[in-house]
């Protein structure tokens, strides 16, 4: 338990934590996100889409790592384009990249501390926040181990720990479940459900069943455009139209994609 300050319970001044209008983002020369409209509020949102759909590029743009090529992007009520102070926006963001690099000689605790410092957290709050983040991802026993000695799944969890260390209002996790064993995936689902209670969590994944059970909302994109946004149940309902897959959600996923591809081909 920790004390909740008045600032944390104050109402926000914006309707959507993440709001993209006609967003276009380049990956190299290719326009990987092409006119995407997206509005995300509090809750856990699963980002689905085939390889090359623009998921990672979208995540990078939302994390303010790359500059959008066009459109409007509003994060936590602030425009996230040029001429704005990105610092304030970035303090409220947690981000786990798909290929996340780290300094191999750092211990888990040093790594998370370093990231907390880069996120400009108050110095006095850092040790507690770091310990809490490491505890939440279940790495407390390995906190003193160097990053290079950890297994892939543990490194991934250390990555999740650095993403959540600043209690972000927008948490962006790109393929967080890669390398986690089934038990850890269950714990991870529990963790993001917990985080999604009061923040906007966007999880990009290929595992449709993760989305079906852990997410309150599904975002399906293909070729840089929004195909579907709705609850996992609505997605599963599309599965009745037919489509390949073993579960209703998977069938819904493939049915929607097929329909979208057919529509694009007509255009």
């Amino acid at each position: 338990m920790r004390a909740v300050s008045a600032a944390e319970t104050a109402p926000t001044g914006y309707a959507w934590a993440v709001h993209a209008e006609e967003l276009r983002v380049r990956a190299g020369r290719h326009l990987a996100v092409d006119g995407l409209d997206l509005a995300l509020g509090t809750g856990v949102h699963g980002l689905l889409g085939p390889n090359g759909a623009g998921k990672t590029t979208l995540m990078r743009a939302l994390a303010t790592v790359v500059k959008p090529a066009g459109g409007r992007l509003t994060l936590l009520g602030h425009a996230a384009d040029e001429h704005t102070d990105l610092r304030r926006v970035r303090r409220g963001i947690g981000y786990l990249p798909q290929q996340f690099g780290f300094y191999p000689r750092f211990t888990v605790r040093e790594f998370v501390e370093y990231m907390a410092w880069l996120k400009e957290m108050p110095k006095a709050a850092i040790p507690d926040a770091v310990q809490r983040a490491i505890d939440r991802v279940g790495l407390a026993a390995k906190a003193g181990a160097r990053m290079k000695t950890l297994s892939g799944g543990m490194q991934r969890r250390a990555g999740i720990a650095q993403a959540i260390v600043n209690d972000p209002s927008v948490l962006l996790l790109d393929e967080p479940t890669v390398g986690l064993d089934p038990e850890q995936r269950l714990e991870f689902r529990e963790l993001i459900r917990d985080l999604g209670v009061d923040s906007c969590v966007l999880v990009s994944t290929h595992l449709v069943e993760d989305v079906a059970v852990a997410c309150t909302d599904v975002v399906l994109i293909n070729e840089g455009r929004l195909v579907f946004q709705g609850t996992p149940d609505t997605l599963a309902a599309y599965g009745h139209e037919g489509g390949a897959g073993d579960s209703p959600t998977e069938r819904g996923y493939s049915a929607l994609l097929r329909r979208h591809r057919a529509q694009e081909a007509v255009r």
Binding site: V65, R88, G101, P104, L118
Partner: peptide
């Protein structure tokens, strides 16, 4: 040359 560039580029301290 910075393995953690993507993590660092998204933090408020980057600049």
């Amino acid at each position: 040359h910075d393995p953690a560039w993507e993590l660092i580029a998204g933090t408020p301290a980057a600049g």
